[in-house]
Design a protein around this nucleic acid. Structure first.
Lengths: 338, 338
DNA sequence: TTGAAAGCGATACCAT
DNA sequence: ATGGTATCGCTTTCAA
């Protein structure tokens, strides 16, 4: 079943069917209706390859995220964003081609596989994957892209959550509850979003007249969290609250507090950066700074579609505000056990 | 840059370049080398759409998983499997088109979007998505597919973990540690894998001469887990162990035990079905029945490629053995507190 | 408003 | 071992 069959049955030319198919003008009302009805009744869908070949458009976008074996997809950020993007792309008649891999080496080749042969019209790229080489590759192949998260300053189009503001919200929430000695558990210091969160933390602490130097850096995805945090909580005399600045650090932080004899929420308050379905499952819930993933997906796709269609996006950079979801893990300092 | 440019530069015909590109015979050694060198030095990659049109192959497979907003991708099973498949597909020169969505309604349209226009050569379908209508659609469009997990009996090709065996392993592990009163926390009873796990549990309990009737069914992704399980643990006098038969139920089960005054692992042993990176992060780790995701991905792709190439797969059904990873959450019954 | 025809960039068959 | 050419199914001028 091809466009030609439809044309013959409708007694029109292929060109006319094509116009109808693409909602283009220049087709009589009656004719359009007739063709449309035929297309629907036969559940006809034009061949994507032929379409792509003729129109030089694949109607496919690439989603390029960090090598993900256990790390990225095990968290909540990328999976949810991926879902958002897949869905919103579908709503616009686009499909999503995925580039993921377990290891760093394979990431590169997986990435290239997706770019090759003009398979995609554009790409959404995760910040960690947005290295110079990758971006150069995209530019070279003339593929528009939007980076989610920010790593390098050299990226032209990106959307990110306001990491510093999120950290500030966490601090202000805790300070508002009467906490004065707060430990921040942060990821590896070379990551941009980590730096931003630390900056936000320290600014907010300073603004409150408090000591912002209690920052513990841990690698993600490791058991190193536990000892580091419990040491910080145990030795930092008078510490009443912990700011776990990434989803991956939350569990370790909670366990560390318990291990240090200062369980959450009875003796220690905790606020997480990144929300996760599990956080609502904890006995009284875990207070979290939630990233607006749906909106991030929407904004990123918006920009990308602008770029694909050759229109300059309204903004080159989009910074979205996170939202604090208060749950039971953060309590009044005065009500905590000593 | 097209195949034609390459042909001219190499002073051969397009046909010859095409043969080289596809590693087909009928090209002189010297010629092949010359063309190959040119292709590499120019980093030429044939246009995927043109290729797909002429060869009637997209070199793309679809990955269709349950609507996943918070559920599926928040767990560990699908994300990891997706990664495996993306990577292994890439190794075979295939790319992965994704069909995901947040809600059940959107799942259907997202699914169709991927199938339309012969975009994919074949599909990997998640069991929950393998409803009659979806499969009928695939069959109708003549798209080969392999189902991961098993839901209906009507599915011709599938790969799944041996759920019953996994449950048995959990029981035997616990029994070996001296536990005699074990509660199973299971997912919704209408799911096939849940039924299988319950069956395995009960068979193993019976074989050990124990009471296999302590089965608590909970919906996934909810806070209903907590009350249900703590009730079971508290009222079931003498219960010393819990078998949390899905990753999503583990945290709730652990919290429930603590809430019932019988914390894991001090007073209650726990074994999980499904492993998760987080499980290694818990203080002493959580014992888990681990699914061989890498192997599942490989087997599923193997079958799929057979089907795509019109060769009958060696097996129509593949059942893989899970593996028990012993960690600290399961202890000798005799060493547990009262 | 509509039709006819020329590509789009590969593959594959048929000669040579 | 190679070249020439029809073909894949659609989009897009260009005429009418």
């Amino acid at each position: 079943m091809t466009i030609r069959d439809i044309a013959e049955m409708a007694r029109v030319s292929k060109g006319t069917v094509s116009r109808v198919l693409n909602g283009k003008p220049g087709v009589g009302e009656e004719t359009r209706g007739r063709v449309l009805k035929l297309i629907e009744s036969l559940d006809f869908h034009p061949n994507a390859a032929a379409r792509g070949l003729a129109a030089r458009r694949s109607n496919t976008i690439g989603f390029v995220i960090p090598h993900t074996g256990r790390h990225s997809l095990a968290g909540s950020f990328w999976p949810v964003l991926l879902t958002e993007i897949a869905e919103q792309a579908a709503a616009r008649g686009m499909t999503v081609l995925l580039s993921t891999s377990r290891s760093e080496q394979e990431a590169e080749s997986a990435f290239k596989a997706v770019l090759r042969g003009r398979r995609i019209d554009g790409a959404i790229v995760g910040a960690e994957q947005a290295g110079e080489r990758s971006l150069a590759e995209l530019v070279m192949r003339d593929i528009p892209f939007v980076v989610v998260g920010r790593q390098s300053e050299a990226v032209p189009w990106w959307v990110d959550v306001d990491n510093a503001a999120g950290a500030r919200m966490a601090v202000e929430h805790l300070v508002g509850l009467g906490h004065r000695a707060i430990v921040m558990v942060a990821g590896p210091g070379h990551l941009h979003h980590v730096q931003e969160r630390v900056r936000g933390f320290q600014l907010a602490m300073k603004a409150a007249g408090l000591d912002g130097s209690r920052v513990v850096h841990c690698p993600y995805e490791t058991e190193a969290v536990l000892p580091a945090v419990s040491a910080a909580v145990a030795t930092g005399r008078g510490v009443t609250a912990v700011f776990a600045a990434a989803g991956d650090l939350v569990l370790g932080s909670i366990l560390a507090c318990r291990q240090a004899g200062r369980p959450v929420p009875q003796a220690t308050s905790l606020v997480a950066f990144d929300d996760h379905p599990l956080f609502a499952q904890f006995p009284s819930g875990i207070t979290a700074v939630s990233q607006p993933l749906e909106q991030m997906g929407r904004e990123a796709l918006d920009m990308l579609f602008h770029l694909i269609e050759g229109r300059e996006p309204e903004r080159r950079e989009v910074v979205l505000a996170p939202r604090l979801v208060a749950r039971g893990s953060s309590a009044l300092a005065s009500e905590q056990a000593g």
